[in-house]
Simulated assay, not measured.
Amino acid sequence: MNILDIIIERKRQEIKESKSKITLQQLKDSEFFNRNTLSLKETLQSKSGIIAEFKRQSPSKGIINDTVSPIEVVSAYENFGASAVSILTDKDFFGGNFNDILKVRREINIPILRKDFMIDEYQFYEAKSIGADVILLIAVCLSTSQVLEFTELSHQLGLEVLLEIHTEEELQHINKNIDFVGINNRNLKDFKVDLQHSVNLKNQLPKNVLSIAESGIYNTEDFNYLKEKGFDGFLMGEYFMKSENPAKAFEEFINKIS
């Protein structure tokens, strides 16, 4: 089993445990479930285009930064022009939790992407209940029919959908209802980064699809290269989070690209 297989197997166990503790009705009765969500489609084009991520750790890098406050970091992301924030909610492999979103939902007025491995209907109700606006679907983890089903459910709940792909085969997962297609510069199976591979895939996307470059953007040169190649947005986390002061790192990056 590769690391992705291990993560998905653990995720199935985690979902089963969650269902035994919190019912679907309890999720629907939660504070944020009926709030009007914010649109990444709107903020992506009116701000920097960066979806700035709060991430404590990853399987490939280990601990990245587990000392900073989610509220402090994401508030700075918003103040300095992020189009949205991405917050990891996977606990075992990325050190995330639902409270990271719950804590910041009242503090910021830009969309929140719940970043996790979404493989079950229940998780979409969870996402809505904690105040997320956008969810991530990872093509390699899902069938084309699941992507369509989960996209329809997300839209019923008022959530936008970012579909992540990495291979040409995964292009078939794109359907007309997808809001954004993210192209992961990092292969989830071996964690190698290849920006040119992502550009080649971007050129095969339907022309009306908003494209997001994900992961492996380590400097302004990478950012500018991908922007010149036509990407509409950029999901970045490690570049900022590896700094002792992610808020300051984001501010400095914005100043450079401006």
Rank of each mutant, 00 (worst) to 15 (best):
F117A: 09
M241K: 15
E121K: 11
I165E: 00
K115A: 03
F231L: 15
E169Y: 10
Y239A: 15
G96F: 08
D5I: 12
E164G: 01
H173S: 03
L142H: 01
N34E: 03
T67Y: 15
V73C: 09
G216V: 07
D5T: 12
S48E: 11
D100I: 13
S243F: 12
K128R: 12
R35K: 05
H155W: 02
I217N: 08
L24E: 00
E121G: 07
S211I: 09
A249K: 04
I138K: 01
S145P: 00
I254E: 04
T67D: 14
I119V: 12
K11E: 08
S39F: 07
A82T: 02
E78T: 06
F234A: 05
K103T: 06
I217S: 12
I135L: 03
C141Q: 06
E126Y: 05
S69I: 13
G49R: 13
L44V: 02
T89C: 11
A139W: 04
I3G: 14
M236H: 10
I119Y: 13
L153K: 01
N208Y: 13
V199M: 02
A249W: 04
D232V: 03
F124I: 06
S129C: 12
I101P: 06
I71T: 14
S39M: 06
Q172I: 05
I108P: 11
I130Y: 09
I6G: 09
A249Y: 04
F234D: 05
K21D: 07
L235Y: 04
K41I: 02
T43Y: 12
V73S: 07
P70F: 13
K61N: 11
N224L: 06
L44M: 02
D5R: 14
D66N: 11
F240N: 13
T43H: 06
L88F: 04
Y239G: 13
V193W: 11
D29R: 10
T220F: 08
E238P: 10
E53K: 12
Q156Y: 02
R114D: 15
I6F: 06
Q172S: 05
F223W: 13
N175W: 00
E126S: 03
V68D: 05
A76W: 15
D66I: 12
E214H: 10
I7P: 08
N177R: 00
K115L: 04
D100N: 07
S154H: 02
N34M: 05
I135G: 01
V199H: 02
S69H: 07
S20L: 13
S75H: 04
E228V: 06
I3P: 04
I174G: 01
F117I: 13
A127R: 07
L188A: 08
T43M: 07
I108Q: 10
F98N: 15
D232S: 07
V140P: 00
L148E: 00
E42N: 09
N177M: 01
R114Q: 07
K55E: 03
I64Y: 10
Q123P: 15
A76E: 14
C141S: 09
N177W: 01
K229S: 07
N219W: 10
E244F: 08
D190K: 14
T144V: 02
Q26N: 06
S30G: 10
I112D: 03
E72L: 14
